[in-house]
Write a protein that binds this DNA or RNA. Sequence first.
DNA 1: TGAGGCGTTGCCCAC
DNA 2: CGTGGGCAACGCCTC
Length: 635
Amino acid sequence: MGKPRVIYWFRTDLRLHDSPALKAALDLDPAVLWPVFTWDPHYVYRVKGGVNRWQYLLDCQNDLSESIQKLNSKSKLFVLREAPQTLFPKLFKAWNVTHLVFEKDTDAYAKERDKVVIALAEKAGVQVITRSGRTLWDSDELVAKHGGKPTMSITQLQAAGRKVGQIPRPIPAPTYLPDPGDMPVEFEQDKPDAEPDLNATHRGGNDKTYANIAGPNGDFAIATLQELGFSAEEASTPHRGGETIALKRLQEIFADEEYAATFQKPKTNPAAFEPQSTTLLSPMLHFGALSPRLFYWRAQDLVEKYGKGASTPPESLTGQLLFRDMYFAAQAAIGPPFAQTLNNSYCRFIPWHLPSKAEATDAGSTAVSGSYHVDSPQAERWFRRWKAGATGFPFVDALMRQLRAEGWIHHLGRHAVACFLTRGGCYVHWERGADVFEEWLLDHEPACNAGNWQWLSCTAFYSQYFRCYSPVAFGQKWDRKGEFVRRWVPELRGLDERFIYEPWKASRAALDKAGVRIEGDGLGGGEDGTYPAPMFDFAERRSACMAAMKRAYSIGLYGNDDRVKDGTWKELFEKAGETEMEGLDGGSDDDDDGKHADDAEYRKERGIGAGKHVRSQSAATKEGPMDRFAKKLRT
DNA sequence: TGAGGCGTTGCCCAC
DNA sequence: CGTGGGCAACGCCTC
């Protein structure tokens, strides 16, 4: 028996420091080691993500590859363009591989994929070694110590964590890497099915990802945005990825000992920009360019040194990392339904507008499909305006525009827009908002995204729905002068600070002076110099939503309830006098364009009469309530 | 056991 | 400018 010939498979651990899996690979004392990344078509085609996130991923890969080359000039990150499920059996044979080593992944798809790859490796006589490294503790161990149940609060997470044991200290980056072996790829390439391509709109149709298994030049190079079919010019974020930047940023954060030791998340400013008030390290954690345990111990050691006056979990820096582990462990226990309401026994059923369509899965259960019912044309329009940053509420619009442009907004900003879309304004399903965040956030982490949307919509983790973010007051609390709004909603730049959060209250003279007209719905590229009136009366929507939440809580259904699946939930809500619910929204201020062909079918399927409009607000005219409100205030 | 206190991050107004 | 109570009142944990 010769020395091991090892493939180290990089996935969501694009770093050299503190990698338990990489250490395990090197502990084998390999004769050869191939650092490999495979383009998995699931992420290329089936997970929606804008250009900014692809750029960030490539940043991380490029930086890692350079770091590998510094350790061994013969090596680098070798990128292969094929699905791992078909590629690895061929590589095992062609490269005469003895071991496959990788860091455990935690997401639903990745777990299934890895199960397949492990089975294929065993069949080929290749030994598989995996290590946990994505979280502070192994999520499966946390669940086991928590009685097999999801961790639904930070105290539960901490209790489970104490039972698992101390968070491991970070492992230093390796100081050497073995040479890679030969890399023949004279086998047939299995090309994936490129349809459906959820990123087609971002990609522009020039995708060449799978043209050549070893890349355009046959040298296993990191892909370019161009090769993946994206236009580099469309990348609009200033945030760039990579382990080198992550470690530098970590140094900077901890160089300011007072900032790091006394950090209290709820007291950081969501309207701060240049510089932002938090660490910007969440995307680095997502791509594995930064180890959460390195971050944790830097913070914890500092807090102990700092002594009195240091902040504590859950508000402190370490607290933020604990929340991340809480969501990962909740996801580990609940499984795929964690990302949805349906079949999720920990998620309340609320009859939000724009509910997901369900489809049967192989397992015979049902899962959400990504598309949704347009039960209310009005809610659909509110949702589109929310996504476009054209709600007419400047603070919400600024946040949504920053999110689209930069792929990052402050955590409290996420709270404000999430509350607004769901329980505190539009009464639109949290899964719609989660879809948008998935597409735009650089740090999109399925577990954290689903968990936070459930939190903010008061469907799980949190239940104080009467605490509602105001799109006006919340922004004002942090940024009285409206600098953040001016940065992202330039059409309002010249407006007096008395009106910057409520332009509908400005006089004609004040609007003229600022060079802005309150006009249109902000969709379809509106005219220059206009900004829309608010799309509804917030106070009215706030109380309608709160009353609806109260009824939904008293009815008390959860996502796994049979009545949720068979549609009989509707009777319960009608009996309770609910009007703010899917299928019962008149949406009468909207002349629907008939694009939503499923409407009629959906109403029929759920037994909802098309003419049964029982909205309390008087929206019988084309003029929305806010228009009247604005007029009243202007005169 | 039932009551009381607390929970990462609300708003508004009085003082 | 900071603080504290009311708002209307959830679920969970503790005593």
